[in-house]
Nucleic acid binder design. Structure first.
Length: 558
RNA sequence: UGGGGCGUAGCCAAGCGGUAAGGCAGCGGGUUUUGAUCCCGUCAUCCCAGGUUCGAAUCCUGGCGCCCCAGCCA
């Protein structure tokens, strides 16, 4: 049973089965997971899957989930990213309590373990160059060869390693390697690098260190230090598991964590590669990490996607070991699902077409009552102003309509939502023949939207009063990329959708929208879900997602 | 001619030897002052081929296909 007020729900999956079995077998008294981002970019929807899984599992089994920054590479990591990641995880709805950690907190311990391996004859300092190491590693089909430095004494390695730490050597001049098996089929076992020299300032440890452990030498040990029971990561780390286990088994670590892998999320028309996302920002293809077209949590948030929708989506997608590519319609569904229940309804006209109601009093106007959310009576009602001159959507009028079109056209009667039935009497065009105004009549008997004589209309249009409505800019977003598998043909950037952003100015909104707050979802009736843009001085709205539109669908096939 | 995974409907995904859950999309219909929502209905024999079994998506054998790995990235 999915409870709406719970963010625990992770759905059924194999990791959960494993945890359940472990708990039943009393292998752990408590389960501890962790979300371990590297602070070298912003979190995206793929990370949301991992966050929901890790935090969700911890909540479900009453354990805990740590937020641990995997900050072992100072050349790529920044404080800005650390701050953004914390903000985004919190926004998504999760709380790590006091369990905020950094792999860099463990540098001293990890270093000590490196010396331990050297002394045990299981690690050595290699003076080979990057190229030599690569060359000696062999290939996918050929075994590697031992480094000429592999058999030097533990004492010599220890001395060299201490001098590496002391800063005696330049970058890339030496590394510390584990002594495992250069002929292993699994390349990760061919004497992996444990430490490299990096004279770089670290966002946390400053210049205290000039050697840094690699991911492989830091991750599992960090898990052990924190007492992580289930270290959940993505499939590409599967080959690293034997190495993860090797360190756990060969080091006097305080616990025995286990690594489990699941398939990362892939979404149609979306890129979830940090490298590419960073480039999009750096090259200015988007306005920043929080550009509403970005799949980042910051971008989605600015676009108006609620955290609850992300959680719902992730739950629906599930967790498995098979690579998959999820259809965006599933994400759109989750967004609408949440927004339909929460967004206040408003009226806004994106492309205004003036309508003059000829038989309405010239200086008259009146207030009508409109419902804020038909699915939530508690949301109440509001007054909307009606007058002789209004705006309707240009798309809601056609001079020569096809059979399927039942909105406004010459001679046809339609309903103005919450107002009156109107009938189009005359079409006014400019010199170029473009329709610039409609002259209509209204039926005073239909106030509120119902005809006493019971006659029906086939369409209800949204509208705003010309005089009282306020102007605004509205930004419509489309996929950032124009093919479902960006980059599959070569250059990802060549697949950028040139029409991913459409800016509409001169839109007209009902006045109450002037008070809208960023991130507060509203539904512009018959159009979609929108939210006010963050950071814009003037009135700007972003379209989060459109409403389902079965009419548009029929038009595509005709 | 290396190692590690995966293969159930257009897209996700349950299933763990007993006769194919669920969701998204699609299609058909009903309700409707949003062509929205909501509600009904419809939509697969499980990569292929053998085998074991009373019975197989589930077990065995052999194929085929796809993904990951040769950073001093994570």
């Amino acid at each position: 049973m999915a409870s709406e007020n719970s963010v625990t729900e992770t759905g059924n999956n194999f990791v959960r089965d494993i945890i359940r079995a472990d708990l039943e077998a009393k292998r752990h008294s408590e389960i501890v997971t962790r979300f371990p981002p590297e602070p070298n970019g912003y979190l995206h929807i793929g990370h949301a899957k991992s966050i929901c899984l890790n935090f969700g599992l911890a909540q479900e089994f009453q354990g805990r989930c740590h937020l641990r920054f995997d900050d072992t590479n100072p050349t790529k990591e920044e404080q800005e990213y650390i701050d953004a990641i914390e903000r985004d995880v919190r926004w998504l709805g999760f709380d790590w309590g006091s369990h905020l950690y950094y792999a860099s907190d463990y540098f001293e311990q990890i270093y000590a373990w490196a010396e331990y391996l050297i002394q045990a004859g299981k690690a050595y300092v290699d003076d080979s160059s990057i190229e030599e190491i690569r060359e000696m590693r062999g290939s996918l089909t050929e075994p590697g060869r031992n480094s000429p430095f592999r058999d030097r004494s533990a004492d010599e390695s220890l001395d060299l390693f201490r001098r590496m730490r002391a800063g005696e050597f330049p970058n890339a001049s030496r590394v510390l390697r584990a002594k495992i098996d250069m002929s292993a089929g699994n390349i990760n076992l061919r004497d992996p690098v444990l430490y490299r020299i990096l004279h770089a300032e670290h966002p946390r440890t400053g210049t205290r260190w000039c050697i840094y452990p690699t991911y492989d030498f830091a991750h599992g040990q960090s898990d052990a230090i924190e007492g992580i029971t289930h270290s959940i990561c993505t499939l590409e780390f599967e080959d690293h598991r034997p190495l993860y286990d090797w360190f756990i088994e060969n080091l006097p670590v305080p616990a025995r964590p286990r690594q489990y892998e699941f398939a990362r999320l892939n979404l149609d028309y979306t890129v979830l590669s940090k490298r590419v996302l960073t480039e999009l920002v750096r090259q200015g293809h988007v306005s920043g990490w929080n550009d509403p077209r970005m799949p980042t949590l910051a971008g989605l948030r600015r676009r108006g996607v609620p955290a609850a929708a992300l959680r719902d989506f992730v739950r629906r997608v599930g967790v498995a070991r098979a690579n998959s590519q999820v259809d965006v319609s599933m994400f759109d569904f989750s967004i609408r699902e949440v927004l339909n229940k929460t967004a206040l309804r408003r009226m806004a006209v994106l492309r205004p077409l003036k309508v003059v109601i000829e038989n309405y009093p010239a200086d008259g106007s009146e207030d009508l009552e409109a419902i804020n959310n038909p699915d939530d009576p508690a949301a109440g009602t509001r007054r909307i102003r009606f007058g002789r001159e209004i705006y309707v959507e240009r798309d809601d009028f056609m001079e020569n309509p096809p059979k399927q079109f039942f909105r406004l056209s010459p001679g046809r009667e339609v309903r103005l939502r919450y107002a009156y039935f109107i009938t189009c009497r005359e079409v006014i065009k400019d010199a170029q023949g473009e329709v610039v105004e409609l002259r209509c009549s209204y039926d005073p008997e239909t106030r509120g939207g119902n005809a006493p004589d019971g006659r029906k209309v086939k369409a209800t249009l949204h509208w705003v009063a010309a005089a009282e409505s306020i102007p605004a800019e509205i930004r419509l977003y489309d996929h950032l990329f124009c093919r479902p598998d960006p980059g599959a043909a070569g250059d990802v950037f060549a697949d950028l959708n040139p029409a991913s952003l459409e800016v509409l100015s001169g839109c007209r909104l009902e006045p109450i929208l002037a008070e809208a707050k960023a991130e507060e979802p509203v539904q512009f009736e018959r159009l979609g879900y929108f939210c006010r843009d963050t950071g814009s001085e003037s009135l700007v709205f972003n379209r989060t997602v459109g409403l389902r539109d079965s009419y548009a669908k029929t038009q595509q096939t005709v």
